[in-house]
Design a protein around this nucleic acid. Structure first.
Lengths: 343, 343
DNA sequence: GACATTTACTAAATCGCTTTTTTAAAGATT
DNA sequence: AATCTTTAAAAAAGCGATTTAGTAAATGTC
C-alpha cells in the first residue's frame, strides 16, 4: 500500500495524507474529521511509509552501526544488549559487524556503515582514530577524537578496588596479567594499576607481570599466560587477571601446578560475566556495568544525532564494583620456597 | 557525490554512467575508453550509489533481520557469529532484535523488520508460525511452516551420544533436566531422550525429571531445578542437564548437597559453550555446532532470496558431537542410602 | 462591499538511482 | 542511393515518500 493509492482511495492528494500522518504542523488547519478519515484508512490498509523512500527524502535512516571485536564474545554481547535495549525503544535499528581485530576491517566496516547511511556509530572495545561525518560513541575507547564521546570505566577506582582488597587480605606478592596489545583497555588498566600500587605502597615485581597473547575468546590465553608466569617459580600469593575468561584459564593453570585457589593463590578477575558467579569456586571480580555502558552509549549517540548542537562531554565515566566471591582469601603466611608456601 | 553530478562532470548522462558502473549488458556497446573515463572519475570522487535510492528503485535491501531470544546469551551469540560471517562476506548486513521471550515482541519484531524491507529473516531459538512474504530460515525451530527452512540438530543422535555414554559408564539411575516450556528445543530433545532410553533399555524415573523455570541466562535456573531434584532424595548417579549453563548451576547445587562431581554424580551438559572446557572440572557435554548452524542458516537464506524457484529442503540437519571431559565418571557401586552412595 | 485573513487543500519539485525506450549518427548491405 | 544494422548515448519514466509554495473558497474586519 503506497501513499499515492491511499490518497486516491481517500480522494485526497498524497501531500495531504502525508502531512496528516506525519502530524506536521502544516496540517493544523485540516479539520479533525478529515484527519480521522485518513487515520482510519491508514489503519484499515495497514499503511506504512516505505522506508527507503522516506529515508531517501529525509536523509535519515534511524539506523546505527555497531562495530565490535566479535559478537559471540561475552563482553561485546553484554554491551550490545544494552545498546539494543535503548535503540529499539527509540525506534532505531542497528547493524553489527565484528572486526576480529583485523586492521583492514576496522577501517572498512565503518566505511560500509556510512555507505548504508547509518545515522551514527558505536565502537565497542575498538581502537578508534577516524573522524567521521556522523556522530560516534565508543565503549572503552581511549583515544581522544574530537566529536567522539568515550564511555569508559573509572579505571582508577577499579584498580583501587582490586588492589586494596588484596592488600587488606595481606597479599604483597601480587602477579598481574596484562591484556593483549590490541585490547583498548590494556594500557589504561595497567597504568592505573601502577599508580594505585605506588599509592598504597605495593611493589610490582616485573617478573610477576605476564601478558595475554593471541586473539581467542577462550580461557586458553589466560591458561598459557599463567603457565609462563609460573615457570620461573617466582613466588606470589595473588593474581589479578585481565578478565574473567582469562582468570578461568589461570585457575586451571594454577591447579595443574599444584596451587590451591584461593588457599595458595587468590585470583581476581575483571568484568563479572554471567558465568563468573558459577565457577567453582565463585570468581571474585571487578564488575564493569557493561549493559549500562551500552545503554549509555546508545543514549548519548542518539542525543548527538538529534541535537547536533548540544554540548556533550567527550567522556562518560561509569563506576566499577568489587564482587567478592570465593577466589580471594587471606594471604598465606610463612616463607615461600620454590613458589609454594610452607605452612 | 551523486550520480547526476558525476555524469555532469563527465559530460555524459546519468543513465550511461549508471549502466557502465553496474556493468549492465546494455553498456556493451560503449567503448572501453569511455568506460575507463567513467571508472576513473568514480574512483576519483569516491562515488558510491546512494543506498536508499538504489534500494527504492530495485526493491532490494541486501539486509536481513535476525531475531534471537537475547543477544547476550551465548547460544544466540554463537549462532549470530556464524550468520554474520556468511552475510558480510556476501555483501549483506543484518539487523538484530532480542525478543526476550515476550510473545508481543516475537510478533512485532518480524513486522518491524518487514517495514524496514529486509530481504529475509533468520529466527534463532524462537517459536515460529508466521508465514511471511520474505524467505525465512530458523535455527532450532521445529514448526513446519511451508517455505521456511529449519536448521536443526540431529537430536536423536544427541540423545544417543549422551545416554549411551552414561549407560556404558554403568549409570542406570539418571536424572534429567528439561528446558523451559518456551525453549524451542525442549520438546524434541525430550522426546528423543525418551525414545533412546527405551531403545537401550533404560528406565526413566519420573521423579528424576526436573525442568528449568523462568527466563534468565544465568546458571541460577539449573541450580534451582537441581535443588528441587535433590529434595525428595531419590537416588541418582548421573544428570543430563539441558545446557551447559544449567549444568554449571546443577554442579553447584550438587556440591552444596555434599555430592562430588563426578565421583558421586556424573553431569553432562549440552551446547559446548566456550567456558564449558574451563569449568573445574571440565564439563562433559554434547556439542552443537552453533557457528556452523548460523552459517548454514545464512547460506540457505541467501539461496532462497536469490534463487526463489530453487528446490530447497525444509530441514537442514547438523550433527552433534560428544565432548568427554571430566564431569562424567563410572557409576559408583553399592546401595544408595538417602540419596548418597555407601562405598 | 472591499480587503485581509484563515481554512482546507493541492501541485510540483525533490531525494538519487535504475532501466526501458528512443534517437541519431555511422557503417554495412543490397 | 536507399535501406538495414550497429554503435553510442540520452530521454524519460518510475521507485514512494516529504515539503515548500501556492490557490481557491470561506470567513472576518472595517
Amino acid at each position: 500500500m503506497s501513499l499515492k493509492k491511499l490518497a486516491e482511495h481517500l480522494d485526497l492528494s498524497p501531500a495531504t495524507v502525508s502531512l496528516v500522518i506525519n502530524r506536521s504542523s502544516v496540517a493544523d488547519s485540516i479539520p479533525q474529521e478529515t484527519k480521522d478519515r485518513i487515520f482510519a484508512a491508514a489503519r484499515k490498509f495497514k499503511y506504512r511509509a516505505n522506508f527507503f523512500a522516506r529515508s531517501l527524502r529525509t536523509q535519515r535512516s534511524f539506523t546505527v552501526g555497531v562495530i565490535v571485536p566479535e559478537v559471540s564474545d561475552g563482553y561485546s554481547a553484554s554491551v550490545m544488549s544494552g545498546v539494543e535495549d535503548y535503540l529499539l525503544q527509540e525506534g532505531y535499528f542497528y547493524f553489527v559487524a565484528s572486526h576480529r581485530h583485523r586492521a583492514d576491517l576496522i577501517d572498512e566496516y565503518p566505511r560500509m556503515f556510512l555507505e548504508r547511511s547509518v545515522d551514527g556509530l558505536i565502537a565497542v572495545d575498538t581502537p578508534w582514530h577516524l573522524n567521521l561525518s556522523v556522530p560516534v560513541v565508543t565503549v572503552s575507547g581511549h583515544n581522544e577524537v574530537k566529536g567522539v564521546t568515550n564511555i569508559v570505566l573509572n579505571h582508577r577506582r577499579a584498580a583501587e578496588l582490586a588492589l586494596k582488597h588484596l592488600f587488606h587480605l595481606g597479599h604483597r606478592r601480587i602477579a598481574f596479567m596484562k591484556g593483549q596489545e590490541f585490547s583498548s583497555d590494556t594500557q589504561v588498566r595497567w597504568s592505573n594499576i601502577e599508580r594505585v600500587a605506588e599509592q598504597i605502597g605495593l611493589k610490582i615485581n616485573p617478573r610477576l607481570v605476564t601478558q595475554l597473547q593471541g586473539d581467542s575468546p577462550s580461557p586458553q590465553l589466560g591458561y598459557i599466560a599463567t603457565k609462563i608466569l609460573l615457570a620461573p617459580r617466582t613466588p606470589f600469593s595473588a593474581l589479578f587477571a585481565f578478565n574473567d575468561i582469562s582468570a578461568m584459564g589461570a585457575i586451571r593453570a594454577l591447579r595443574e601446578a599444584g596451587r590451591q585457589v584461593p588457599e595458595d593463590v587468590s585470583v581476581i578477575g575483571f568484568d563479572d560475566i554471567q558465568s563468573a558467579a558459577f565457577q567453582n569456586p565463585g570468581l571474585t571480580t571487578v564488575r564493569q556495568p557493561l549493559r549500562e555502558m551500552g545503554r549509555a552509549a546508545a543514549e548519548i549517540l542518539l542525543k548527538r544525532i538529534n541535537r547536533p548542537g548540544s554540548e556533550l562531554r567527550d567522556q562518560h565515566i561509569v563506576e566499577p564494583e568489587l564482587v567478592i566471591r570465593e577466589t580471594t582469601h587471606p594471604a598465606p603466611t610463612g616463607t615461600p620456597v620454590a613458589g609454594k608456601w610452607r605452612t
